[in-house]
């Protein structure tokens, strides 16, 4: 966790590095610039990080003079209270009320936990929950495992690396409605994938129509859409690891992958941790891709929690059921995210 900070400190203290590492020169060259800076400015990198460590251990140094910066939170607080927190509260209230088409915006009767007991009694909910977990697990493999692998392979700065990253990031930036429509065609029964299979004489695959496969096809598309972001984040974190460490490992005779796993991977833990939380959020929130690709079908085999909530609310006009499913989703994800929240608390309290 200290590695990225240390380098930044070096960059900040040394005013010759106005652009910061990595922004002017690409990737590996940042390592040389930071090492040159440490030699030129009396080893600023290590000394200043020691400096900040000292301060971390003595928080009272700052207590004396600093006021809590409440004023800096006012605008955000107001905006979020009005347009995010209050709607969240309304969502909770909706989930314990009886909201149908006739009283969509007002005149709700509180009916207690009935919506929840109703939903929890349906097999649809539990199956959707399972699928959502399965989908999220697949996405975790992709956004941590596959992305780690890809990022390792894209570490070397070169024209080709830039092109690959550029294309990936551009795909990631496209509106989901476009990319999901394209994938719907590619995975269709006579889409590109099946045409390719046919051309080489293999049997066709019901990517989106086989009850056992549909959810995994959806997972592949979601992973495709999310991978560029994960690769960028992991690659960025890898580049900010001091090269001395990996070079030392190389001198000791460790191969590339050995170094990646035993040296780089542990250093990336904080980044991967965050990425994992973001991926869980992604898995539990993804809706537009599934909607375009399968509408939750065939049957209900690719219906995840957000899909279930959406269709209950907007196609079946049962808004309070939809709201209750959303609330349950929030609770589930909040439980999953408890370790993350703990780590945030620890980091803040440091």
């Amino acid at each position: 966790m200290l590695q990225p900070r240390r380098k930044l400190v070096g960059a900040a203290v040394n005013s010759t590095l106005t652009l910061g590492p990595g922004s002017r020169c690409s990737s590996r060259c940042s390592s040389s610039s930071s090492s040159s800076s440490s030699s030129s400015s009396s080893s600023s990198s290590s000394s200043s990080s020691r400096l900040s460590l000292v301060r971390l251990r003595h928080p009272q140094n700052r207590n004396r003079v600093q006021q809590a910066p409440w004023l800096y939170l006012v605008a955000t607080g107001a905006a979020l209270t009005g347009f995010a927190l209050y709607p969240l509260f309304v969502l909770f209230r909706m989930s314990v009320s009886d909201v149908g088409p006739t009283n969509l915006l007002s005149g709700w009767n509180v009916i207690g936990t009935q919506n929840f007991t109703d939903i929890l009694a349906t097999a649809d909910f539990w199956m959707s929950l399972n699928r959502t977990f399965g989908l999220t697990a697949a996405l975790l493999i992709s956004s941590l495992g596959i992305a780690f692998f890809c990022a390792s392979m894209l570490l070397t700065a070169s024209r080709s690396t830039n092109i690959v990253l550029g294309v990936m990031v551009f795909c990631w930036a496209m509106p989901p409605i476009v990319t999901s429509s394209v994938w719907k065609f590619l995975l269709d029964n006579d889409g590109l994938f099946n045409s390719a299979l046919k051309a080489v004489g293999l049997p066709l695959v019901g990517w989106l129509s086989s009850p056992n496969l549909a959810i995994w096809s959806v997972a592949i598309v979601l992973a495709w859409a999310g991978l560029p972001f994960s690769v960028m984040v992991i690659r960025g974190a890898m580049l900010s690891i001091s090269p001395e460490i990996t070079e030392a490992a190389a001198i000791d005779g460790a191969g590339f992958w050995r170094t990646q796993f035993s040296i780089v991977f542990p250093q990336l833990r904080p980044t991967l941790w965050i990425l994992a939380v973001l991926t869980v959020l992604y898995g539990f929130k993804s809706f537009d891709f599934i909607y375009v690709l399968t509408k939750g079908g065939p049957g209900t085999t690719s219906s995840t929690l957000p899909v279930l909530a959406y269709f209950s609310a907007f196609n079946g006009f049962n808004w309070s059921i939809g709201a209750a499913i959303a609330v349950l989703t929030i609770i589930v994800v909040a439980i999953v995210a408890i370790p993350y929240m703990r780590s945030v608390r620890k980091e803040v309290a440091e």
Partner: peptide
């Protein structure tokens, strides 16, 4: 810590479900 936790929770809310509450607001 509380604010960061809250920010995380706010991101859990599925967007389509916020449309109706926002209508009232």
């Amino acid at each position: 810590t509380a604010t960061l936790t809250l920010l995380l929770i706010l991101q859990l809310v599925p967007q389509p479900m916020t449309v109706i509450p926002l209508y009232s607001v």
